[in-house]
Nucleic acid binder design. Structure first.
Lengths: 207, 207
DNA sequence: ATCTAATTGTGACATTTGTCGCCGCTTACG
DNA sequence: CGTAAGCGGCGACAAATGTCACAATTAGAT
């Protein structure tokens, strides 16, 4: 599975694709594996080849909240800025499922920006998409009640895998919504009684 | 007051400064004047010369929530992406106080990116700062109770003007926090009884 | 098969936030 | 002036969410 088949990066010039494959190093992440944590310095830019990566925000007290997913062809806007500005990450990145990425050395950023128009477009599009994603997260946090947020999260997760099952415990969902397990259990019951889902152990079925 | 004295843009090459001043058009905004609204197409990039601009997110039902302020030398990341991608704005921008901006034609974006390293840095730094600002907004929404959010908002507003007075009605603050006037009144009373502020009509004094 | 730890379910209660109605005060304006 | 509109204060209550204690169920290990 080569990178040029990928969606958001399918406009890369052949020469750029070649450079990426030569200089980048592929890496396979297990589900749940942590790629990045707050405070960590990043020296290379990850591009997702397959699977998906969950981006979470953490506060000092260890509370977390889900921001967005990265999928095929996506890159982390955080790593773009962190690499160029030599700043530590302010988010946590965890593989949501078995995920393949390619790590590109950060030094190439500037050079490629000059050399390859498609790289410039890629970088700007990434910023744009991540901005949209963050706006989505803000909408969810600012304007929606917990039951709607939960329902939206479930739909996103199901869409990721193109399946109607979500394999998470109530506790995991609670962490991603920054609430408590009991609240999630309660609201899942409510969604179930509304006929939107069916709950199983370690698994939720969307109807 | 010329642009080269400004903080985040003080590294612009003289030639770039000249181009900006030749091609850009200055504009004076009154306090409360709307510069941008959701759905609007933007054909030029605003750079703040003095004063400050409040960026708000709106949902379909008209609810709003404060995202961040732009101050001297800042530019709107939204306009950078909107201009290049020909997409409508997804935020609302309102002058927080009398504010002077310069509007730069969007067509120059690409050209200057090639021509002036300082412009490229400016654009990337803008993305970076706006990302940080959005993270701050997420933190506030996800992890803080309304009283803390209110207190933080008041401090930010006071810091903007370097004064200890905030000139807002309870209703205005409620809109920015996406809550109701009564809640703000209640929490202001609480902050007052804690000795953090003193309330007056149309004005709040930070202690 | 049995035990153990993880997961889920549930009721009770506290806290936070949202909402309604109504009041009195101040300011702007005719 | 006098009046209307805007602003702030208050009490009561409703709804949403957070928290605690504990029970019931299930998966996985030995």
């Amino acid at each position: 599975m080569t990178i040029e088949q990928r969606s958001a990066v399918h406009n890369f010039e052949p020469a750029l694709v070649e450079e990426i494959q030569k200089l980048g190093s592929e890496r396979q992440l297990d589900a749940g594996e942590e790629l990045m944590r707050p405070g960590m310095y990043i020296r290379s830019i990850p591009i997702v080849l397959s699977g998906s990566i969950k981006i979470m925000r953490q506060d000092e007290k260890g509370n977390e909240t889900f921001l967005y997913f990265l999928t095929e062809g996506d890159t982390c806007a955080m790593s773009l800025t962190c690499c160029t500005a030599h700043r530590p990450s302010s988010v946590r990145a965890i593989a949501e499922e078995p995920t393949k990425i390619i790590m590109v050395p950060a030094e190439m950023m500037d050079l490629w920006l000059q050399k390859y128009p498609s790289w410039k477009n890629f970088v700007f599009q990434s910023y744009q998409h991540r901005f949209d994603d963050l706006m989505d997260a803000v909408d969810s946090l600012a304007f929606q009640k917990m039951d709607q947020r939960l329902w939206r999260l479930l739909k996103k997760k199901a869409a990721l895998q193109e399946k109607r099952y979500v394999y998470n415990t109530h506790q995991e969902l609670a962490d991603e919504l920054s609430t408590s397990r009991e609240v999630v259990t309660r609201l899942l019951k409510k969604l179930e009684s509304m006929g939107k889902i069916k709950t199983h152990r370690n698994r939720i079925e969307l109807l």
